[in-house]
């Protein structure tokens, strides 16, 4: 670098500092750490097994193949049954849709009642609900199994749906309550003065304003319920296993030779739904974290 001219004018000359280089180096290395597993997963799923045994885990396939994906979808075995992971996919979809709708509906109404109406004991209930959000699920599982067994609900898709609604309630309530606390109470008072009832205010005034938080809640619930493993294992029963449980059974089943390419294809297939939600929702996903976390 030459000395600066005696009379500087205009834009300060840009210099590449060591700090700047360091910033990018750190970011690129971090990005590599996060991307390598995805890359390995994708490459493995597109290679034949012979190549996996010989080659290096990072390399591109020499012989590209989508057979592992087909096999993972419709042919992979869990124990003795070989119908692929598609069965789990269908189960997960059937669990997902009613669970998301129900948990958001109940969460929204509960949050609304807690924010705008004074019901005796409501705060105590809300406190219990919040505490419940922190308690490890293992504490509730056995009694719930007994309860569901007694009602004949155990080992059904409906059973898993109910469990998701139960354990989604704290977060959903908190989400909606926090959102509704941000709405000026005067708006609610105006609606009361205009003669609105509990339900008419909710449906005509509050719900139309709730679009942002409903989107956030949907993102949280879709990814959360899709990614669930514990409730699927404990409540779904052999016939109704959701995708995550089936994936684990396929990959970690002790029978036969491990087919890593099929395993990785199945893993990617399972990850596809939350990844799609993540990439399509963009900043909303972060907002979901913020809404559920920063305020919560």
């Amino acid at each position: 670098m030459s000395l600066p001219p005696p009379d500087p004018e205009g834009r300060r000359p840009k210099t590449v500092t060591a700090g700047r280089v360091g910033v990018y180096a750190f970011l690129v290395i971090s990005a590599a750490f996060f991307l390598i597993p995805l890359w390995v997963m994708l490459m493995t799923s597109l290679k034949p097994m012979e190549e996996i045994r010989l080659g290096n885990i990072f390399s591109l396939p020499k012989l590209w193949t989508i057979d592992p994906w087909i096999s993972a979808w419709s042919g992979a075995c869990t124990g003795l049954e070989c119908h692929g992971i598609s069965v789990g996919f269908m189960n997960s979809v059937q669990i997902l849709i009613p669970s998301v709708i129900l948990s958001i509906a109940i969460g929204a109404v509960t949050g609304y009642a807690l924010s705008f109406w004074r019901v005796k004991g409501a705060n105590v209930m809300f406190g219990c609900l919040l505490l419940g959000a922190f308690i490890p699920y293992q504490v509730f599982i056995y009694p719930l199994v007994r309860l569901f067994a007694a009602t004949g609900l155990y080992n059904s898709l409906l059973c898993v749906v109910v469990v998701h609604v139960i354990f989604g309630l704290p977060l959903m309530t908190l989400l909606f309550r926090n959102f509704y606390q941000g709405i000026p109470i005067d708006l609610f008072k105006a609606a009361r003065v205009d003669g609105g009832s509990f339900w008419s205010i909710f449906l005509n005034v509050i719900l139309p304003m709730s679009a942002p938080i409903i989107i956030v809640a949907t993102i949280l619930q879709v990814t959360g319920i899709w990614n669930d493993f514990l409730f699927g294992v404990a409540f779904a029963g052999r016939e109704n296993l959701p995708m995550t449980v089936q994936l684990n059974n396929i990959v970690n089943s002790m029978q036969g030779e491990r087919r890593y390419n099929v395993d990785m294809a199945a893993t990617l297939l399972t990850a596809l739904v939350p990844l799609a939600v993540y990439f399509l929702s963009g900043r909303w996903f972060v907002r979901g974290i913020a809404a559920g976390a920063v305020k919560g």
Binding site: T223, N227, L247, N248, M264, A271, F285
Partner: peptide
């Protein structure tokens, strides 16, 4: 960068566990 750093969080622990089991596989992994 933001997207890359956060995407694993959207996936399940099952997926995370299986990927890392494979990456750290002693006979065929890294």
């Amino acid at each position: 960068f933001r997207t890359i750093f956060l995407y694993p969080y959207s996936m399940s622990f099952i997926v995370t566990g299986l990927v890392w089991q494979w990456v750290l596989n002693p006979t065929l992994g890294v």
